[in-house]
Design a protein around this nucleic acid. Structure first.
Lengths: 207, 207
DNA sequence: CGGGACATGTAACGCGTTACATGATTAA
DNA sequence: TTAATCATGTAACGCGTTACATGTCCCG
């Protein structure tokens, strides 16, 4: 595999298509927002770019779906070459992650700012991470079962075809593992934020 | 503050300079590698770029230090405007982070690859995260006390000046909080990796 | 005598973000 | 009538990475 051929987002889209079946770029965007947003954000402009490149690589095929009184859809289907690329990717070791959390950076240099500003930032983070934890708990990353993806409207034959890549009835443990990670991560993050708030928060005399 | 004026890495460098005193770009790179690498990687080319831009913004001043039989150094010092920018940054809310961990992406679509490949990836991640945890535990992010940064060699007067921004004897809790986060994160990550390995690892009959 | 540390840069390239653009339908 | 949903795109911009470039000193 040459350098610059594919990136995590490429495989993210390819994985969505392989896992849930043929979709339009618009659908991929919605899947990203509902399943991968907390892990890997993606603007629709980026998704359309990647789909075009994957078509040039022969990893997906595109079929134009014309509809009356609705904009046309371009439905993408993973090819055998695309599946091969996914398997190859799975076999390669993943680099260790970097956190790249701006809050941690702000807090590392917290002594160069006002303590109340740091405390305010921590309180904001608590709210956002509690929201995320609630989401994770409510729907376990919103991951529908393999091949079960179906979008509203009369999407024609293509949307109703069963996913040709679905592997029968055997259950898939991986989405549950990822959801579990998300929950454990948010719980740990929140524990730490509360600890930090106690340390940082200015003590008031009348308390 | 206009869009595109400064980014996390800008404030990371500015914070290093404000916290540990005047440094060259080469020194900044070393500080990054020893304190922030796990959180925010930075190539030296990027650091030199940022230092140039910060000079144009008036956030730092540059003094050329000529030395015999050694390459010249460009020593950067934070200005009052730079400190003001840092304080302003501290007062602004931080966006919620995205994980962007390729291993999680690979595992989400683990069912599209070979189970043994996934297991191998998990084992590799365990080794790397154990290393990182050991590092964190050994030196708590390698963060020297405020103003205590000193590099080898006879670096001239500049390197020996006490940090003008150091705020006396009061201890700084923030680096310890960040180090604590790093340790808790790695512990949680490792717990999860071991759980995942048990689920994923193919059972052998003779075991 | 080769390799590491010291020290600073340029060039190429693309992911990822933000903004701009179009235009129909449907529901409040 | 205002706004959201459906649906796809282009353009600008820069962070971040990788590779290329130069030259001295010091250690084994």
């Amino acid at each position: 595999m040459e350098r610059g051929e594919a990136y995590p987002i490429t495989y993210g889209i390819l994985g969505l298509l392989a896992y849930w079946g043929p979709m339009s770029g618009y659908d991929v965007k919605h899947m990203f927002d509902h399943t991968l947003a907390a892990m890997w954000g993606a603007a629709h402009s980026q998704i359309y770019k990647e789909l075009r490149r994957m078509k040039e690589l022969g990893w997906v095929e595109m079929e134009r779906e014309e509809r009356e009184s609705r904009p046309d859809r371009k439905v993408y289907t993973v090819t055998e070459q695309g599946l091969e690329a996914l398997r190859k990717w799975q076999g390669q070791p993943a680099e260790i992650m970097q956190l790249r959390d701006e809050l941690l950076l702000k807090m590392l240099f917290g002594s160069l700012g006002e303590p109340e500003d740091v405390a305010q930032n921590i309180r904001g983070a608590i709210v956002r991470h509690e929201d995320r934890l609630r989401e994770y708990r409510a729907n376990a990353l919103n991951i529908p079962a393999r091949g079960a993806f179906q979008r509203g409207g009369n999407a024609g034959e293509i949307g109703k075809r069963p996913n040709p890549y679905a592997a029968g009835d055997e259950e898939d443990v991986y989405p549950a593992l990822i959801a579990h990670f998300g929950i454990e991560f948010e719980k740990m993050y929140l524990r730490w934020l509360h600890e930090a708030l106690v340390v940082v928060e200015p003590k008031r005399s009348g308390d």
